[in-house]
Design a protein around this nucleic acid. Structure first.
Length: 594
RNA sequence: GGGGUUGUAGCUCAACUGGUUAGGGCACCACACUGUCACUGUGGAGGUUGCGAGUUCGAGUCUCGUCAACCCCGCCA
């Protein structure tokens, strides 16, 4: 007999009654009835009930087994009486009558219970991550992540993509975040950078003729974390295709994503039908106030600046006269909400930087509003027509500079959606945001800069760069959004050196900058580069959506904490003098700090 | 770098305006119980209230400082 197990803890069943079996696992729970002891033995696969009879010589030891010790039991598989069967367990119709037992590893008092679903503070959970990972939900999340990763691989390979590993120790890539640096021992005072993304390499793979590349790629960025953003490292489904259009990229991603989400979504959860909706960037900023709209939210924002060009309502009209905008959002059927509801919404708007939040409600012929008295009949009618108002509807207003009005509008839209429970339930709503501007003006310096990736192909190519106002040039740059979460950015790349130099010139860099910063890429583009493009959906966020987890640490086996520390491994940690010397690094006392 | 919240037993939470010996549950230890499945019952042990100052007759509670964790902003196209 195998020294540890003939079955897992989810395997024994009625067909094997009377046979001998050996199973190993963790002591999940113990129910000690004096005359008989029940043990729930748990492993990765499930739970089996072990029964220990008082006749057994190890019966006395039962009292000294701690929860979560690993134990091996050998005995006979026995059918349970009907009234003692447990319908909640896959193995609930049988149990193992123990003849032998062996403690494999004894557990001390646990820092927190494994056999419950209570939430415990993260610092504790992270310090004992191996224990936390035994617990139901987290354990399932990690298994789900494995299945999702595998499914993605199969789907990409099925579409003729080749998986290629790209370097981890490399040079800085052009993503705009801070690099993680690794000092070189062989080359004093020089550094490798960990890749922020395999951007250059995947483009070079296209130049190398691989046609379709993908990789479940680790990416490293030395930036602070958020609930949905790991500090330091994360994974992307990185992909790139040759001789492709933007629509070709969309088709691949839509096929993979809709297949993936259909496969792993809970029963009854709807996924967007194909093709995903495409929303131009400027349209998204108007309708939703942001470029990652949650399409489950039915609310839309409209522009009503014109109506307020000349009104008695000075608060708005003065904003318009200074070049600002007035945006409105209709919510149907809430005119009878309490005064407190509206006051809370005003307070919320102020908390996100608005001076206030105007509103007008219509009920039959009555107009309910703190601001309607400043508007004449025509102006009120214009608003009703613009927003298609019916009795019971309320129109909310935000007046500010355009950028601020968008941001506040987006926040108010999300808040109203959440507070009024307007979101479509059980749905994954995808969309593409397209037609991003190639350049934007930096508000502080007034300079024209790349608004996204400098390697995107401008729409209209060289002609657009030479003839258009740079701020009017659009790029073949796109984002994939699902339920208000940005899953991915991608682009059709600029594969022509002369257009690359011109684009950088517009952003204020001369050709030497391009040559120095990206020597491999720019040379490759002079030796036969195919038109190409790609995208890189974030694996972590995909798993978060499918596992329905709000925090990224719930879907990563060994995450760092928010301050980018590994509390279990104690990283980052100090290194010794010898290592420092080899790396040609001298530590100096920090300035300004005690 | 900035803002907010939190810090009480191994864990999770209590403790009115400052007031007697800081409590309940889980876990741990002991005892009882032959069919439970979150077993039950009885008893026990377990505390520098994050740390350091201060105010006060008296501080878990108030003040200041400090440390840590989480959330947000900046940042991350």
């Amino acid at each position: 007999m195998h020294p540890y197990r003939t079955h897992t803890c989810n395997e024994i069943n009625e067909s094997e009654v009377g046979q001998q079996a050996r199973i190993s696992g963790w002591i999940h729970r113990v129910r000690d009835h004096g005359g008989v002891v029940f043990i729930d033995l748990r492993d990765h696969y499930g739970i089996t009930q072990i029964v220990v009879d008082p006749e057994r010589d190890f019966y006395e030891d039962v009292h000294h087994w701690r929860l979560e010790s690993t134990v091996c039991f050998t005995g006979e598989i026995v059918r349970r009486d009907e009234e003692t069967a447990n319908a909640g367990l896959a193995t609930g119709k049988v149990e193992l009558m123990a003849d032998e037992m062996k403690v494999l590893n004894r557990a001390e008092t646990l820092p927190f219970p494994v056999a419950d679903e209570t939430d415990y503070p993260e610092a504790t959970r992270l310090r004992y991550r191996f224990l936390d990972l035994r617990r139901g939900q987290l354990h399932e999340n990690i298994v789900l992540r494995s299945k999702i990763t595998n499914s993605i691989r199969q789907r990409m390979i099925g579409l003729d993509f080749n998986e290629v590993q790209t370097p981890i120790l490399t040079a800085s890539s052009p993503e705009g975040a801070r690099d993680f640096l690794v000092p070189s021992r062989l080359h004093p005072h020089k550094f490798y950078a960990l890749p922020q993304a395999p951007q250059i390499f995947k483009q070079l793979l296209m130049v190398a003729g691989f046609d379709k590349y993908f990789q479940i790629a680790p990416c490293f960025r030395d930036e602070d974390s958020r609930a949905d953003r790991s500090p330091g490292e994360f994974y992307q489904l990185d992909m790139e295709m040759s001789f492709c259009t933007q629509d070709d990229v969309f088709e691949v991603v839509e096929t993979v994503m809709s297949g993936l989400f259909d496969e792993f979504a809970d029963d009854g959860t709807k996924t967007s039908t194909l093709p995903f909706e495409r929303i131009p960037y400027r349209q998204a900023m108007l309708d939703f106030g942001c470029d990652k709209p949650d399409l489950r939210n039915p609310l839309r924002i409209i522009d009503v600046t014109e109506v307020f060009e000349d009104t008695e309502f000075k608060a708005f009209t003065s904003v318009v006269k200074k070049g600002g905008v007035v945006r409105a959002m209709k919510v149907t059927g809430i005119v009878d909400q309490s005064r407190k509801f509206f006051d809370d919404m005003i307070e919320f708007a102020q908390s996100v930087g608005s001076k206030g939040l105007g509103y007008i409600g219509w009920k039959d012929e009555e107009v309910r509003s703190p601001i309607a008295k400043f508007l004449n009949r025509e102006q009120l009618e214009a608003l009703k027509t613009a927003a298609d108002i019916e009795s019971g509807d309320v129109l909310f207003f935000i007046a500010d500079k355009e950028k601020a009005a968008c941001e506040i509008g987006a926040a108010v839209r999300n808040e109203l959606g959440a507070r009024l429970e307007l979101l479509e339930p059980n749905a994954y709503r995808f969309c593409w945001i397209v037609d991003y501007p190639m350049f934007e003006r930096d508000e502080a310096t007034g300079k024209v800069e790349f608004s996204h990736n400098p390697f995107s192909m401008p729409q209209g190519e060289m002609e657009a760069l030479e003839t258009k106002d740079p701020l009017e040039v659009l790029a073949y740059q796109y984002d994939l959004v699902c339920n208000g979460i940005e899953l991915s950015s991608g682009a059709i790349r600029n594969h022509k050196p002369e257009i690359m130099y011109k684009a950088f010139e517009i952003a204020g860099y001369d050709s030497a900058v391009v040559d120095n910063k990206f020597p491999g890429l720019i040379t490759a583009f002079t030796l036969g580069a195919p038109p190409h493009g790609g995208i890189a959906p974030g694996l972590d966020r995909i798993v978060m959506l499918l596992a329905n987890q709000p925090n990224i640490r719930e879907i990563i086996a060994f995450p760092m904490n928010q301050s980018a520390q590994d509390l279990m491994m104690n990283a980052p940690s100090e290194i010794n003098e010898r290592q420092l010397r080899e790396l040609h690094i001298q530590l100096r006392p920090m300035k300004g700090k005690k």
